[in-house]
């Protein structure tokens, strides 16, 4: 039983990581109706910026906040300079291809600027003399601060996003642009600015997610997001690409399924990824909008 709970906690620990990257994916989808394949690598680059700032003497929390601001601006610039020009004609494929290009380019730039040696990210939560996360006891199990911090951040992000999208005029505009850019322009919404905002916000969330993931990892290099992005996409697909809550819950499901498979299913030793992929396949067959996604209704 203890072992089961330990693995459950391992799964939740990874799950919050997947969820936080999935959340950034969902946010871009909600605001622009597009998938951003470069999300993970943008987060990686921001993570290196956090690391660079922190290793130059800035307190790690300040470094992460500053890196989020930089990511926010950079996200807006990317939308304006790289994405908008290819959106002409409204073929979503154009943008997908550009984000795939960015995926490769940003990863290469990260290696070029920051090198290929593994680095360690200072931890913004309590750690012991060996550099391990401090743990607190909870119901007889010890939980590391990393998991608690990630879970708290994730909850805060969800609440803020919910408030932004559902309770503010800005959120209403964002939803309007995502749902119908042409009509929203006709009622006077500056759709361009809203799209920039969507990219900026998701880049900032990505920067936060990446920095925390790196701090939780033993070490990180430019491959930090390679595996995480696969799981995050799995989580986003499972939850439905337009549901932040779905992304979070599915991220946890994917993480826990992965950990429990590692422990209990010897036949899938080393290929645990099969489990989340199988889950996605079933969900997409049975409920193509994902577990929490909204059905699109076309008026004819």
């Amino acid at each position: 039983m203890d072992l089961f709970i330990s693995q459950l906690l391992n799964g939740i620990g990874n799950g919050v990581v997947y969820a936080s990257v999935a959340l950034a994916l969902v946010l871009i989808f909600r605001t622009t109706g597009l998938l951003n394949f470069a999300q993970g690598e943008m987060a990686l680059f921001s993570t290196y910026i956090s690391w660079k700032l922190a290793s130059s003497g800035l307190p790690v929390v300040a470094a992460i906040l500053l890196s989020m601001v930089i990511a926010f601006v950079a996200g807006a610039i990317i939308e304006r300079v790289l994405i908008r020009p290819v959106e002409v004609g409204r073929s979503p494929l154009n943008v997908v291809i550009v984000t795939l290009g960015m995926f490769l380019a940003i990863n290469s730039f990260a290696q070029l600027f920051f090198g290929t040696d593994p680095q360690t990210m200072p931890k913004p939560w309590p750690s012991d003399a060996s550099g391990n996360d401090e743990r607190i006891n909870f119901l007889g199990q010890s939980i590391s601060w990393a998991v608690i911090a990630l879970a708290l951040v994730l909850t805060a992000e969800c609440v803020l996003l919910f408030l932004l999208l559902q309770k503010t005029r800005l959120g209403l505009k964002i939803r309007a642009v995502a749902s119908n850019p042409d009509s929203s322009r006709l009622v006077g919404i500056n759709a361009g600015a809203i799209l920039m905002l969507g990219w900026a916000l998701s880049a900032a969330i990505g920067a936060l997610a990446g920095s925390l993931v790196a701090a939780r990892s033993t070490g990180f290099d430019a491959s930090l997001m390679a595996t995480v992005l696969v799981y995050a996409f799995a989580a986003a697909a499972l939850g439905g690409f337009d549901s932040p809550l779905g992304a979070v819950i599915s991220g946890l499901v994917v993480g826990v399924a992965d950990a429990l498979t590692t422990q209990y299913v010897d036949a899938l030793n080393g290929i645990e990824l099969v489990v989340p992929l199988g889950l996605i396949l079933i969900v997409l067959l049975v409920r193509p909008t994902g577990l929490f996604g909204r059905q699109t209704v076309e008026r004819v």
């Binding site: 072992l3 330990s6 693995q7 391992n10 799964g11 620990g13 990874n14 990892s217 033993t218 070490g219 990180f220 290099d221 491959s223 930090l224 390679a226 595996t227 992965d258 950990a259 590692t262 422990q263 030793n269 080393g270 290929i271 645990e272 990824l273």
Partner: peptide, 21 residues
Amino acid sequence: KVEKYATGANEVGAQLTSLAA
């Protein structure tokens, strides 16, 4: 016990929980 991890994975927490047990 032998635990395998996917080539390229940086994180082997679940495998180690299983091995440590």
